[in-house]
């Protein structure tokens, strides 16, 4: 069982940990330098054999520490989850040690996190983009990247030559009607992100 005793013993064993409040699973904040040894000890001594998920959060451009990674582990012995947060100290060149040597499952998750957030995982065996194509210049899940996307050339030159296609921002007028997170009620109701085409204005040609 993952209970208070278990949490206390972990906190005692690993002095660099801090516990965080959480509504569901026990959550620790771990410094990046100790992440590898902590995760390894969890696997070898506490029975957390499965890395179920690894991802990152972008806390926004104004945040002191912009990026942090989140690891979820599952234990077959304890039948429960554990969550580990680690904060990247550098906002311009976010970096995190790779846990793929301990959990091979982390390999693809880390590639995805690199692809979407641009967090560099040191000592990763094959750190390249996994969902977007290799030449893609942006990191889509960063908060400053727009949902519609940014103009970019398509990867295949010969196809572009014939079709004149390119990666264009998706149209955001006339729907989808999305809600903003903040502001007054009239601002936060679902509306088209681009308002150059509404019921009051004609559809631009």
């Amino acid at each position: 069982m993952i209970d208070e005793d278990f949490t206390k013993s972990l906190l005692q064993k690993h002095s660099y940990l801090t516990q965080q409040d959480s509504v569901d699973w026990v959550t620790f904040e771990c410094v990046p330098e100790k992440l590898l040894s902590f995760v390894e000890s969890l696997r070898d001594t506490e029975g957390f054999e499965i890395l179920v998920d690894l991802t990152a959060i972008d806390h926004g451009e104004g945040a002191d520490f912009r990026y942090s990674t989140v690891i979820h582990l599952y234990s077959l012995v304890q039948r429960g989850y554990l969550r580990i947060h680690s904060t990247c100290t550098d906002n311009d060149k976010p970096e995190m040690p790779s846990v793929s040597s301990i959990y091979p499952a982390a390999n693809w998750h880390e590639r995805e996190t690199f692809d979407m957030f641009g967090i560099h995982f040191s000592d990763h065996p094959n750190l390249k983009r996994i969902l977007m194509w290799d030449e893609y210049p942006h990191f889509p899940l960063r908060k400053d990247f727009p949902l519609a996307g940014i103009d970019t050339p398509l990867p295949a030159d010969d196809v572009v030559e014939v079709t004149q296609a390119s990666v264009e921002p998706a149209p955001m007028m006339g729907g989808p009607f999305v809600s903003s997170n903040s502001g007054s009620m009239s601002d936060s109701e679902p509306r088209a992100k681009d308002e150059s085409w509404t019921e009051k204005k004609e559809k631009p040609v």
Binding site: V23, T55, I57, D58, V70, H72, S182, S188
Partner: peptide
């Protein structure tokens, strides 16, 4: 708050990790 939940789907464990800052829109969803 933040929440992680997995359900036993036909293909395996489908998990959602949601970070909410309150309100009607998730801040981050994995």
């Amino acid at each position: 708050g933040e929440v992680y939940f997995e359900a036993e789907n036909p293909k395996g464990a489908l998990g959602f990790y949601i970070v909410s800052k309150g309100g009607g829109v998730p801040y981050r969803m994995k």
